[in-house]
Write a protein that binds this DNA or RNA. Structure first.
Lengths: 195, 195
DNA sequence: GTCTATAATTAGATAGAC
DNA sequence: GTCTATCTAATTATAGAC
């Protein structure tokens, strides 16, 4: 069907845009580079998305769709799971998600300084609903600690996967390997929420 | 003196470049924008630094000069300080440094994907010497944990200060305030190296 | 729907006035 | 040493062929 092909092409473009923008920032990547990555012409981007700005929003939508899907289980744990174990599971899943999608943190860092319109939209549309779920799982810690816990967990979980080449060159440890991902999860869970 | 004025102008340009590149990435910021921030003409950048690439290197030099200066005390603690207390001091200082210079983590994340020449140079010239000092302070933890500890501490310490607008809008907490910086340090030190 | 061609703007680097 | 003017290349967005 035409509609299927249309959707497939759009997703190809959005995925290319998401990865490229996460790597080089909104201003740091050209629509031509995105088009090349998606194996389409530059003109097609304007056809499917009116502007580079609109393409950025589509990329954000896709990013949070993936993130919410990946975090769904730990954000809505069955009541039978103990609160402490819920937190351990949350951290572990944050590590696995960050390893699979380092573009999440990169994208979130990129919006901060570039443009406050995009920034506000991103927080209200996508980040706040996710933060509420995070707060729900963390609910029994002091309320003033919640912001600190969020950025601590996010940074501790994800930074190593945002700099894999640097980490490999510096330490010899490859954050892309499954063993290293598991080791990072084990390390963090035991460090931050010991049993 | 001429030499002093020359040095002052150069530093103005380097500082503007460092902050701008950290915010928007190497490709994300134009030399014109950097020149405007430094209150000089765009042509002057080419006079003092041969190319945008060379300006990036000068910015990296300045960044690590500041970082090493700020971390000097905790990296070379007197032997009278207990190892556990050394680690607590290290984390606390990492928080205060990250708060004062969020451009450090931003700059280090930016080099990762942009260009591997710059990336290799940065790791070997500046990051490796600093990592050795980190390892020295952390020395009594298992060797395989060191890379995980580095990126955990760095991410946990600094991410919140890399997204101050987002954090403020999302949680109401302003990472720019002194009270919040201290709270983050207290939270992290007690979480990661409890007495 | 997708491509090629192109218009208007902005990029990094150079040349020359002062 | 610093600025203005300018060159060539690359940028986003548009127009029109198929």
């Amino acid at each position: 069907m035409r509609a299927e092909q249309r959707e497939a092409t759009r997703e190809q473009i959005v995925t290319a845009a998401l990865l490229a923008i996460s790597e080089s920032g909104f201003n740091g990547v050209s629509t031509r580079t995105i088009a090349e990555r998606a194996n389409v012409s530059q003109g097609l981007l304007t056809y499917h998305f009116k502007s580079k700005d609109a393409l950025w929003r589509a990329a954000a939508d896709q990013l949070f769709a993936i993130a919410n899907d990946s975090m769904q289980e730990v954000f809505s744990p069955p009541a039978s799971v103990e609160p402490l174990q819920q937190k351990r599971n949350l951290i572990r899943q944050m590590v696995y998600f960050s390893a699979a999608h380092p573009e999440f943190i990169r994208f979130m860092l990129e919006h901060e300084k570039e443009n406050s319109d995009r920034s506000r939209w991103l927080v209200e549309t996508h980040l706040r609903p996710m933060y509420k779920k995070f707060v729900h799982v963390m609910g029994d810690i002091p309320e003033t600690d919640l912001p600190h816990a969020l950025y601590t967990f996010a940074g501790a979980s994800g930074l190593i996967f945002c700099a894999p080449n640097e980490c490999k060159q510096l330490t010899g440890v490859d954050p892309g390997s499954k063993a290293v991902i598991k080791r990072h999860a084990d390390y963090l869970v035991n460090l931050m929420v010991p049993e």
